[in-house]
Amino acid sequence: MDAKTLLAKLFPAGSDVAFDGLFFHGTGESASGKVAIIGSVDAAPIGVELAFRMAADVLEIVREHPARPILLLVDTQGQRLSRRDELLGINGYMAHLAKCLQLARNRGHKIIGLVYSEAVSGGFLASSLLSDHCYALPESQVRVMNLPAMSRITKIPLERLEELSQSSPVFAPGVANYLKMGAIQALWEGDLAQRLAEALDAPTESDSRRQWGEQRDGRRLARAVSERVRHAEP
């Protein structure tokens, strides 16, 4: 689904969104008031400029619109791979965006992410995975790396990876795997405006992804191991 179609479905009461290259931002009218929108199109590689641009918007929302919910609609093929981005410290720009979203969170802005097309590796880490509630459309694609590339790097035969991926959600691409492992709270189907209204009304708790991963039998260890470290004697 392209971004304009998505916006029309999410905000039947209207939205005011400006597109600038791979980036877009604006507001939408939801059942419970205005929602700030920050997003990208065309599987944007997230480089220093885009991360910086998104952070600027978050800071402006915090300054100008206290407690307004923020909806991240980021379509990304991953971090931009270039020597220049590394030279300028791309990881610091992504960290800055994460800190700005934490500031928003600390000040009572609800942060919702919706993966509507593609979310990959570092680009996913620096966008939708930073939200309090991360959802996805069923047809979206989520991954760290495709299996042939994974096979080349790990030197594990592709057939073995393909075979195991039938039963294990742990490494293979697929939105269903991320749902099972708790990173994606739910898939949005049907009336998207209604799904958004429900998400805006849902209580926001602390990071619950380990609990969901365990309940859905996708990540069996993360919650228990973290709890053991947290409460270990002495």
């Binding site: 590796s121 930073l130 790097i153 490494f171 991320y178 990071d207 992804r209 991963g213 993360a222």
Partner: peptide, 15 residues
């Protein structure tokens, strides 16, 4: 990479 999805989500939880 051997547990790429669990690792990526784990990094997000660390963040």
């Amino acid at each position: 990479l051997h547990e790429a999805n669990a690792g990526l989500i784990g990094v997000s939880e660390i963040m």
